[in-house]
Simulated scan of single mutants.
Amino acid sequence: MNRRHLLKLGALSAVAVAGGGYWALGRGEVPGEVSLAGARQVLAALVDQSLVSLEGWSPTEVFNHCAQSIEYSISGYPELKPAWFRASVGPMAFGLFASRGAMRHGLAEAIPGAAPLSEPASQALALQRLQRAFEAFAGYRGELRPHFAYGELSHADYAQAHVLHLYNHLSLIRPA
C-alpha cells in the first residue's frame, strides 16, 4: 500500500470513529447551563455539602484537577501532546464535544505533567480554588495558552471546554 492510500485510509478511519463517537456520546443531564455563569452557580450550590465520588478521584481531587486545567489555560500546560495531534485529533475531539454539548473522557486521567491533586487537601478549600479559577478565567483578557490536546482555543471555546470538563467530572459526584 502506498503512502497516499495509507493517509486516505487513516483519514477515513478517523472520520468513521469520530462519527460513531458523536452518536455514542450521550448528552445526559447537565447540572447547569453550559456557561461560565452556569458553572459558577453549580459550584456555589456545592458549598458546605458533604460529597462523595461514585468511583475514581475524590471530590477534592476532582476540584483540584478542574482548577488546574483552568489555571493552565492561562499560565500554560506543563506538557503538550505532539503538534500533529493538537492540529488534528485534538480539535476534532473538542468539536465533537462542543457540538454535542457534552464531554466524555477518562475521569481519572491527570493532565500530563500536572502537579499531584492533593493541594489543597480539604474539599472546601479545593472547591474555593476551583471557584477562584473560574472567576479568574472569566475576567482574563490576555492571550490564552494552547490546550495540551485541543491546541489553540478562543476564550469562548476554552470557557465551553472548562464547563463541559467540569460537568463530565461532576457526573460521578453525589451528596454523601
Rank of each mutant, 00 (worst) to 15 (best):
N2R: 01
L6A: 08
K8V: 13
K8T: 14
K8E: 15
G10V: 03
L12K: 06
A16D: 02
V17L: 13
A18F: 14
G19H: 07
G20Q: 06
G21Q: 02
Y22G: 04
A24R: 10
L25C: 05
L25Y: 04
R27D: 08
V30N: 15
P31E: 06
A39C: 04
Q41P: 02
A45C: 10
L46G: 06
L46H: 12
D48R: 13
S50T: 15
L51Q: 08
L54A: 14
E55Q: 08
G56F: 06
S58Q: 10
P59T: 13
F63Q: 03
C66K: 14
C66V: 15
Q68C: 09
I70T: 13
E71P: 04
Y72P: 02
I74F: 05
P78M: 08
P78T: 07
L80N: 07
L80Q: 08
K81F: 14
K81Y: 15
P82V: 13
A83E: 13
A83S: 10
W84I: 15
G90I: 08
P91Q: 05
M92G: 09
M92R: 14
L96P: 04
S99G: 12
S99E: 09
A102N: 05
R104H: 13
L107D: 11
L107P: 01
A108Y: 14
E109T: 07
E109D: 15
A110G: 10
I111M: 04
A114M: 08
A115M: 10
A115S: 15
A115V: 11
L117M: 09
S118I: 07
E119L: 15
S122C: 07
Q123T: 13
L125A: 15
L130Y: 00
L130T: 02
Q131I: 10
Q131V: 08
Q131P: 07
A133E: 01
A133H: 02
E135R: 00
F137Q: 13
A138K: 00
G139F: 00
G142E: 01
L144W: 08
R145Y: 10
Y150R: 00
G151I: 10
L153F: 09
A156W: 02
D157R: 10
D157C: 02
A159I: 08
Q160E: 14
Q160M: 08
Q160W: 02
A161W: 05
H162K: 08
V163P: 10
L164R: 03
H165E: 02
H165P: 03
L166Q: 00
N168T: 04
H169K: 09
L172R: 15
P175N: 12
A176H: 07
A176D: 11
